[in-house]
C-alpha cells in the first residue's frame, strides 16, 4: 500500500509514498528474526529443525509477549511502565496463596489477577495522566510497592497443588500437521499451552485495535506530538490514562499466564521482566520517544530475544553471563540500526 500511487475520491494524491518509520523498523525486525532462525536451523541443526523448539519458545514467553504488548502501547503514547515485572511476581504469589491457602477456584484466581491489574492501572494511570507526574517515577514506586507486597503476602517460594489448576496447567493443545519423530521412532505432535492461545489472541486484538480504532490512532497521535493531538480534539489526559490503564490490565493477564506456566509463587519470579519487555518492544521497532511502534513487531521482538538466548545456550556457552552479554549486544545492534536508519531518512527527507 505504501508504494502504489493512488488517488483518493476527492482527486488528491495519496499522502504516503515512502515507507513510514513504523514499517521500516517492523521489516528489519521480522527479517532479522527469520535470518537468525534460518541460520540456527542450518548451522545448529537438530534442535531447531523440530517444530516443538519453536513452540517451546512460545510456551515459555507467552507471558512476556502479553507484557510487551502493554509496554508497547505505553511507549507509543510516550510513557514507560517499569512496574509490570514485579506486578507479575505479586500476581503469581497472590494467586498461589489464594488457590492453596484460601481454597479459591481457578476462576476466582484469574479474577484476582485481573483485579490487581485494574487497581494498579487506575492508581498509576490517574497519577500519571491527571496529576502530570513523570511515568518513570510513578511506575518506579509501583514497582517498589509490588515488590514489597509480594513478600508481605508470602515470603517463601512454594508450588501450587490445587487440582483444577494443575489440570489447566497441564492442558496441551496439539498443533495440527506439526510434529517430529523421536528417538524411538514414535511420532510426537507439537503442542502449545493455553497461555500461548491467550497471547496470540491479545496480539491480534491489539493489532486490529491500534490500527483501526479511534482510540488506537489517538495513542499514536498523543505519542507523536501531544500539543497537536490536543488541537485535533483528542483528550490527551484521557488517552494517556487509558494507555497506562491498558498496560496494567495486560500485566494482570500476563501475570496470570505466567503463573499458569510456572505454577508456583515466589518473590524472585519474573525479576527483570520489565526490562525484557522494554527490550522486546525496542527490538520490535517501538521507540521510547513515542508515536512509533507496532504490536506485530513487538511479537517478533520477543521471539528474537528468546531465539538468541536459545542459540547461545545450544552453542554450549551455558554460563549465565554469556546470555546477558549477547542479549545486550543484540539490543545495541538494533538500536544502532534504528538510529542510523532514522537519521538517514530524516536527512533525505529534508
Amino acid at each position: 500500500m505504501a508504494f502504489s500511487k493512488t488517488t483518493t475520491k476527492e482527486g488528491r494524491l495519496a499522502p504516503r509514498h515512502s515507507m513510514s518509520d513504523t514499517n521500516i523498523l517492523l521489516c528489519i525486525t521480522i527479517l532479522v528474526f527469520l535470518v537468525m532462525y534460518a541460520a540456527a536451523m542450518i548451522f545448529l541443526g537438530s534442535g531447531f529443525l523440530k517444530p516443538q523448539t519453536f513452540f517451546n519458545i512460545l510456551n515459555e514467553n507467552a507471558a512476556l509477549i502479553i507484557l510487551s504488548c502493554g509496554m508497547s502501547i505505553v511507549m507509543i503514547t510516550g510513557g514507560i511502565d517499569i512496574s509490570v515485572g514485579t506486578m507479575t511476581a505479586l500476581i503469581s504469589m497472590s494467586c498461589a496463596v489464594h488457590l492453596d491457602y484460601q481454597g479459591g477456584s481457578v476462576a476466582s484466581a484469574a479474577g484476582l489477577a485481573l483485579l490487581i491489574g485494574v487497581l494498579f492501572g487506575l492508581v498509576q494511570g490517574y497519577i500519571i495522566a491527571y496529576l502530570e507526574i513523570q511515568p518513570f517515577i510513578v511506575t518506579l514506586a509501583g514497582m517498589f510497592f509490588a515488590k514489597g507486597m509480594t513478600t508481605i503476602v508470602n515470603s517463601t517460594q512454594f508450588n501450587v497443588e490445587h487440582e483444577g489448576f494443575q489440570a489447566l496447567k497441564a492442558t496441551r493443545i496439539y498443533v495440527p500437521g506439526m510434529g517430529s519423530v523421536n528417538k524411538l521412532g514414535k511420532y510426537v505432535p507439537a503442542y502449545v499451552e493455553i497461555g500461548v492461545i491467550v497471547a496470540v489472541l491479545v496480539v491480534i486484538l491489539l493489532f486490529v485495535f491500534l490500527r483501526w480504532s479511534k482510540l488506537g490512532r489517538a495513542f499514536y497521535a498523543v505519542g507523536g506530538n501531544r500539543q497537536s493531538a490536543n488541537m485535533l480534539g483528542i483528550n490527551v489526559r484521557r488517552t494517556r490514562f487509558l494507555a497506562h490503564f491498558l498496560c496494567s490490565v495486560l500485566a494482570g493477564i500476563g501475570g496470570f499466564v505466567y503463573f499458569l506456566h510456572v505454577g508456583s509463587g515466589s518473590p524472585s519470579h519474573a525479576s527483570g521482566a520489565e526490562m525484557n519487555a522494554i527490550a522486546s518492544s525496542i527490538i520490535g521497532g517501538t521507540m521510547l520517544t513515542g508515536g512509533v511502534g507496532n504490536i506485530v513487531g513487538t511479537f517478533f521482538g520477543v521471539l528474537s530475544l528468546s531465539t538468541i538466548k536459545n542459540i547461545v545456550s545450544s552453542l554450549g556457552l551455558d554460563e549465565a553471563w554469556w546470555t546477558n552479554i549477547t542479549v545486550a549486544a543484540m539490543i545495541c545492534l538494533f538500536l544502532l540500526i534504528q538510529s542510523v536508519v532514522l537519521i538517514r531518512k530524516n536527512k533525505s527527507s529534508k
Binding site: 553471563w321 545486550a328 538500536l335 534504528q338 538510529s339
Partner: peptide
C-alpha cells in the same frame, strides 16, 4: 556516545549496560 551521537533515548541506551554490566563484572 550512544545518547549524544547516535541520539538514542538515555534509558534505552543504558539498558544495554544494565543487562550486560553484572555479567561483564563477573567475567
Amino acid at each position: 556516545v550512544l545518547v549524544a551521537y547516535f541520539k538514542i533515548q538515555p534509558m534505552v541506551a543504558t539498558l544495554i549496560l544494565y543487562t550486560a554490566g553484572r555479567s561483564i563484572a563477573a567475567w
